[in-house]
Every structure is written in C-alpha cells, then in structure tokens.
Design a protein around this nucleic acid. Structure first.
Lengths: 321, 321
DNA sequence: CTGTTAGCGCTTTCAT
DNA sequence: ATGAAAGCGCTAACAG
C-alpha cells in the first residue's frame, strides 16, 4: 500500500488499472458486472494508491443524505440531555459510523407537524429515528419520510416494558405487597401505554386497587409523585416507577418522610441504569437494553428488513424490593 | 410560500427570479456581491418555491465533509457508553445540527496513529474532536487534520478541574480532615494531570502526606480503590475522587466495610452528575459543564476562533463532606 | 454586479 | 463486460 500524499480519486485508480472509470466504479461500489480480470486489477490499483472513496460525492450521485436525525418529541426543553436520549444517540453515532453517517439530535414539540415537514425537505437527512411519538405522528408522517423512518417506542423498536414492569409487580405481590402504586410515564407518549396496561391488568385480576400517578421519567417528578402518593393513599406498601431516575426520586422523598425501604414501602424502578446498583439501598429494577434498541432502530431507519422488534426486559432484584 | 411537491433546485429559483444560477447561488449562499434588486428577486423566488438548498451538493462543491468525528482514546472497550462520552456526544449532535452536520463516535486505542490516519483520509469527515488524548497524540496529528481538530481535556477545551478539586480538598482540610487520599484518573490521560497536581501542591504546602490511588473514572474502580485505601492507609479520614461514579463506588465499599460517611471518612466526587443529589448520603462534588465544553470544542473544531478555554468548576457541598 | 463555464468525485444509463 | 457521456446540485473562477 503505497501511501500517497493527496487522496487518489477514482480516475487515477481506473487509469492505473487500465480500465474505464465506469468499470472502476462498478468494482469498487460492488454494483454491476465486471470481469474477474478487471475486478482484480481495480482492487490492486485501489490498494496501491491507498484509494479512499469520497463519501460525499457518492451520496450526491446517489441522491441520499449524510446524516441520521434522532428526533425526540417531548415538552421538556432539556430532554436532549436526558440519559435515555444521550445513551441512544451515542449508540446510534457508533452504529452509523462505519457507513460514514453522523447523527443529529433534535427536539420536537408535542405537535411536530411543521418540524417533520422541514426535516423531510432537508436533503442532508438520510433517515430519521423517532422517539416520544404518539400514534398520530406515526400515521401522518410526511410522504418523503416514509421508508426511511423508524421509531423507538410503541409501534417501533422497543423494550418489552409490559413484561418488565409486569415481572416487578408480580414480585411485589409475591412478597406480600397489596397496595401497589404505579408512577407511570407521560400520558401523551405512546410508549407509556404498555407498562400501564400491564400493571392495570395484573392489579385488576388480583382484585387489588389500581393506583396510578403520571410521571415524566425524571427524579424530580419521582419526588413529587411520592409525596402525592403518601398524601392520597397513606396505606401504600409499594411504589413501582417506570424509570430508575423516578424511582430514585421516590426513594429520596420517602427517606425525607422518615419511611424505611423496603421495610415500610418497597420501591422498584425500570432501566437498570449503571448507578442503580451504586445507591443505598440498591435499587430493584428491570433491564432496558437502550443501546441495542437504538441500534436496531437505526438499522431499520436505514432500510434493514426487521422492524418493530420487542427487546426483552429482565428483572434485577436488589435491596429496595 | 407555495409549498411544492418536489424540492426545487437552484436552477428553478434562478429562472423564476430572472437571474443566472450564479447570481442565485451568490445570494442564497451569502457570498459574493449581488444587487439589491436581484437579491430581493432571488429571495422571493426561493421563498415562493419553498427552496431548500441541497447540503450534500454544497459540501461536495466546497470540498468539505459532512460529519464530526468524536474520537475517544481509552483502553476500555465500553468507553463509548460512558456517561461523560454520551453526554458530550449528544451535546455535539445538538450543536452541529443547524449546520446539517452529524456526529460519529469512535473509540481510539492508546496508540491511535493508524486510526487517526484513516480518519484524516476519510473525506466525509468535516472535523474531529478528541478526548482522552495525551500530548504525543496532539503533537503528531496528521497534517490533513490540523486546523479542523479540537480537543476536550488538557491542551484543549476543558473544565478547570484543578480549581474544582482544589476547592474540595481545601474544604476537606477546613473541616478538619488531614489524611486525604486522592483517587485520580488514568495516568495515560493528559487531562488527569491537572487535578493530581492541584491535590499534590495543596497537600505538600500543608505538610500533609500525599496519598494517591490511580483510577479510571468508573464505579467499579472506586470500590477497588476504597479497599486499597483502607488496607494501605487505615487512618484515612477523607477520600477525594475525580469522578462521581468513582465516588459512588467508594461510598459502596465504605458502607460494606461498616464505615460511616462523613462520620468516619468524608468523600467527594467530581462532575456533579444529576444522580449525585439523589443518593444517600447525597454526594459532595464539583460541577463539570460537560455540554458547554463539548459545544465549545465542536465550534473550535469547525474553525471558531477561541480555543483552549477552561470552564469553571464550582464545589457543591452536600452530605458526604 | 452578472452570466458563462468549469469543476467537486462518483454513479449510471446506454450503446457497443 | 465495458466505455463514453450525462448527470447529482451547487460553487467559484473568469470574463464582461
């Protein structure tokens, strides 16, 4: 590999291989026919010259974009700093790297019609990954985005949160808890429906009271929610939150209220964030393979076949329940 | 704004405005002269057609890339899932979005010469942001990368960790601690030098023993480090870690050893991660504006003037010290 | 100030 | 199987 100063271009490779630029292109891009002979010649020439194709030129000729937009719908303006979002975005940035694609992060307001329209019109966008969406959003996607959009959450690639939360609630029940409160997700997020449904069904079939406080996945909301719970249902003996951050907020508020965990009240989270194991008492929760999901969604957005896969969630029982 | 089906191209805008494509380009790209008259005509035509420039074509003509590579040098293979990295990457993804640039994440081995060379040869790369680097790396940057590379950490954009750690150590001293151990960063990271130096100087000038255990910013290493400390220097009355994750690991190990914090041993972290406030006891630490730093580095890599800025770190005293 | 004319580097018909 | 040539959409010398 005779490393060259300036990057060689396709013309030079073709010249050196003694073929036309068209043939060189066919060989190097892997599309179209080429005789074994010229195939070999081009390969060697490219290697000799240390040829690196120009991805931008390639994409322009193809007519496709150079970046993946991860668009997160949320009312919180700081949602793009949320650990779930940053983890997913980072995983996407890793997954798309080999393709020469970068990822851009955008927040979408609850009504995102206009934003989606402008994203669709931006020719630098290769694909879009959505999160925090509702059904309407998925159904009214701009035509130009169809076929190159994937969603994380309900209707797309998601964690099997129903199974995860279900397992935790069942565990709470099995360990004697009967007044179990769910601190759920935001009502306007489609993905919040599944765990809520799982909880509701379990409680109903066990003949137990259904007690739900809506949340927003934050620790701050967890603190507030816990206070609401204590005031509204003083006999509560377990709180299941749909996010670890929320659960930690709950733990704080309970401690401040002088309650012992799990003695007085058991607490569970969801996500199994790294720090869930590092707190006192260590949090019982269920796994959430965010990175795997983000990568799957990215591939789906880029046209990979399998869509709408549900990733398993496994309960991790530590000290709080 | 007569929204059009297909994206209009510059030719059509020029045609509609009654000027040449060159003039239209000059007006729309903002470079080069143009009479107020044609300026206005082009603007209006573009608006009428809902013209959105083709960023990829633009970049090809300009000869510059379409993505920012955030390259993190570390021996840990899972470094790209580290909260610091994901936070920084996400912030960069937000910052670069308006420019139509995406970000890609890559891990670099300790000796990254070859990788940097290949990044330099990749024409899709607009700029590079480095982290976890050492001096040699910065000095031997491929020529093609000079002028479009910025670093997070020593020699680049960084938090003033010396001031932050210094303030915490001084606080420990002021509250009566005399056997203060530092759990530092990895020796092969340039950015780990500053806090170590700050600690060492303070201890030396106070006539106190210098006790350092190298770390790697992880909670696991914090646990190990704490055990080492207890064995090696049983009289230790304070442990200052250079990362919150590490400090949490330290807290765990101390709790497991039956020691009370801050009664027996005070503990401080660094970063002020959101969960630092949510643990029991709440962690005393110092702020680390990761997002601001990442954005500044991104701009620097893209050619903004100001480089090598140091961002302030403010102590946040909670319960552990 | 403005239009003409080459590119930017690669892909892809369309003949041969 | 292969080459010539026409784009992909925009930018930037270079004359006027």
């Amino acid at each position: 590999m005779t490393a060259d100063q300036r990057n060689a271009k396709l013309t030079e490779v073709a010249q050196r291989a003694g073929v036309s630029i068209a043939t060189a292109s066919r060989v190097l891009s892997g599309r179209g026919p080429a005789s074994p002979a010229s195939r070999e010649a081009v390969r060697r020439a490219a290697a000799d010259l240390g040829y690196v194709p120009h991805p931008v030129a390639r994409r322009l000729a193809h007519g496709d974009g150079t970046r993946i937009v991860f668009a997160v719908r949320d009312r919180r303006t700081d949602i793009l700093r949320d650990p779930f979002v940053t983890r997913a975005a980072a995983a996407m940035s890793v997954a798309a790297e080999p393709d020469g694609l970068g990822v851009s992060l955008r927040r979408l307001p609850l009504d995102a019609a206009a934003e989606l329209e402008s994203i669709a019109a931006d020719r630098s966008v290769a694909a879009v990954v959505l999160a925090g969406h509702d059904r309407a959003m998925l159904d009214h996607l701009p035509a130009a985005l169809r076929g190159r959009t994937a969603a994380i959450g309900a209707g797309g690639t998601d964690v099997d949160s129903a199974a995860g939360i279900g397992a935790l609630v069942r565990h709470l029940y099995a360990t004697g808890r009967r007044r179990i409160v769910l601190v759920g997700g935001p009502p306007w997020v489609a993905a919040a429906r599944a765990p809520l449904h799982a909880y509701t069904e379990l409680m109903r079939s066990a003949g137990l009271p259904i007690r739900v406080v809506p949340g927003d996945f934050t620790a701050a909301r967890g603190r507030t929610a816990a206070r609401i719970v204590l005031r509204r249902w003083p006999d509560t003996d377990a709180i299941a939150a749909v996010s670890d951050a929320t659960a930690l907020g709950v733990l704080q508020a309970l401690a401040a209220a002088g309650l012992r965990v799990p003695g007085d009240i058991a607490v569970t989270g969801f996500d199994d964030i790294p720090l869930a194991a590092a707190t006192h008492p260590a949090l019982s929760t269920a796994t959430h393979p965010v990175e795997l999901i983000a990568v799957a969604a990215t591939r789906a957005a880029l046209g990979a076949p399998e869509r709408g896969r549900l990733f398993p969630s496994r309960p991790v029982l530590r000290a709080t329940a």
